[in-house]
Amino acid sequence: MKKYLSIIVVSLFVLSSGIAFAYDGSLIDDTSYTGTITKIDRGARVIELTTKFEKTPKTWKLNMQDECQIQVMTTKDPSERGAFKKFAELKEGTLVNVYGWPKDGKWLARKISILNPDDYMVKRLEADAKAGVFFGHEP
C-alpha cells in the first residue's frame, strides 16, 4: 500500500513540476507580443508572428482589426519616428511589437509597432534572454 502511495505522490509531483516548467513563453491571451513577422497574408489581413526573447519562441496568427495602426516606434532615421505605414508597406522579417487581444478564438491586432533592431530596448531584451532573464509572459 505504501509503495503505491509513494508512486502516486511521486507521479503527482512530477506531473505538477512538468506543468510548472512547461510554461515557457507567451500565451494566446497575452495582449502584447514582440517578434519577427514571418508571413503576411495580405488578402486576409493576417500576419504570422514568431516571438523573440522568450524561452521558447511561439508562432501566432494575428488578425488585423480595421483600426489596426502600423507605426514606426524606433528607427535609425530620426525623420521616421512615429511615421504611420500602410499595410502594403509591411514586410516579412520586420521586428515588431504587436498589441491587441484575443476574441472568439482569434487574436485581434490593434497596433503594430515597428522596431529598430539596434535600439537599446531590443539589445537589452536580447542580452537578458541570453542570460536567461525573460519578461512579461513567464510565471
Partner: peptide, 12 residues
C-alpha cells in the same frame, strides 16, 4: 483609441 500598449495607449 484603445488602451492597448502601455499608459500612452494606442491613440487615434
Amino acid at each position: 483609441g484603445s488602451n492597448a500598449g502601455n499608459n500612452n495607449g494606442t491613440p487615434d
